[in-house]
Design a protein around this nucleic acid. Structure first.
Lengths: 230, 230
DNA sequence: GAAGGCGGTTAACGTTTTTTAACACCGAAA
DNA sequence: TTTCGGTGTTAAAAAACGTTAACCGCCTTC
């Protein structure tokens, strides 16, 4: 059992960012610090996180937009917002996006910690917890962590992009994975060429998974792809 | 035998949405969570659901409007409303639309579960079947899940649109499938061109189903289409 | 520092799915 | 009974997707 909680912290203020970073690290969390929303979103798509802390006002991409993008590809990960002023409208917008909590600067470190642990405790007991590390896709064992597919003929190592795409497909099994949202999540931009690139990866994944005929990556014309296991 | 009950949950409050999602999943249901009525309606038209839970107050499209749209194309699927306050008028409106039950926030998880199972038990004995996953249309076996038609000459894979349309026709067997409601459900807009497009698909489905002469897709002038099996 | 491997993108070509056009016909209403 | 919107059907056009291979930049290795 892996007991490390990974936090993605998006904060443009260097001082506060460093402070939070060291504080949370001292409390046993693994923390990634991003200077703005754009970098944070890239980091988010690089690996799994158990918790997100987003400042609202940031250059490049603000916290709300960031949260929206994150929510498009992960409906579960807890998000806590940090705001400079206590704006009621902001608060509402935050929660409608799917924020789990909200803190107004300045705040006490201990209060932040209390809220994080409260939310984590709740979401852990809620979901019985993912048992992340390996997933079963039909007859094939898949370890997203190690980008590894266990096939009959041996292990197959996936590339970064193959892995990101398969992870999203698996996470949304039996549901349509929206084409444009996926492109923004993995490629950062949903233009035509990235779309074609994604199609190439779909083809690669189909080939990699063809060992089990019960697995199908189905296209839903104009919408996206859907991983189904019969 | 697949015994999975699929629930469509439309709830804009992420906290409550997640809570319900995980709770219901832990009780053995498959749950799709939609952030608002519009997304929920799209999901509803993407696949079969056995049960609907709609929050009333939502952005984009409220629960009542959603229920009305759903009822236009599916008169049977159970709908349960969630409401923030106990408004008597709402209650009435809800039931007039065809709600099966009604819960006022806050409510206990167990109560929700009890009501769901009660309604499902009732509607199952009513309709004798469901046994979802495959449907018999005349002599032809149809698997909406996999967009598959089992014909004498082999399997025929339906396209996304063919499948959506056939699903609606089957769901409303021997009833008139309203032209404009269908267009809104599948195409999102009931303009002239989409109407012509739909006519093309009707022609395709007629051709696909002509193997069994007992099956007929009949036009009801100015109203819509009706699938009849003699 | 040339050669090769690797991950990823772009190009090219083929196929499928969907929309639009075109023309014929039908049916309800004036 | 004429008229006009609604429908039936097929074909052509357009858009989306499937797949393979060439290509490109980067890193490693010798």
């Amino acid at each position: 059992m892996k007991n490390l909680t990974r936090i993605l912290l998006a904060e443009d203020d260097i001082n506060l960012g460093q402070l939070l970073h060291t504080f949370l690290k001292s409390k046993g969390f693994e923390v990634s610090l991003a200077q703005n929303g754009k970098i944070a979103f890239e980091k988010f798509n690089q690996q799994e996180y158990d918790f997100c802390i987003f400042d609202i006002m940031m250059p490049e991409m603000d916290g709300f937009t960031l949260a929206k993008e994150v929510r498009e590809i992960d409906k579960k990960v807890p998000i806590l917002f940090l705001s400079a002023k206590s704006m009621k409208e902001d608060k509402l917008e935050g929660f409608s996006i799917g924020a789990d909590d909200y803190l107004t600067k300045p705040f006490a470190m201990e209060e932040l910690l209390a809220r994080i642990t409260a939310i984590l405790r709740r979401s852990e007991t809620e979901s019985e917890e993912s048992e992340n590390g390996e997933v079963q896709v039909g007859k094939i064992k898949y370890e997203p962590e190690y980008r590894l597919l266990h096939l009959k003929e041996g292990e197959k190592k996936l590339t970064t992009k193959e892995n990101q795409l398969l992870q999203l497909l698996v996470k949304n099994q039996n549901e349509i994975l929206d084409r444009n949202a996926t492109l923004r999540a993995i490629w950062g931009d949903d233009n035509y060429f990235n779309g074609r690139s994604m199609d190439v990866y779909i083809a690669k994944l189909r080939k990699a998974l063809k060992e089990d005929p019960a697995i199908e990556i189905m296209n839903v014309h104009g919408k996206g792809f859907k991983l189904i296991v019969k």
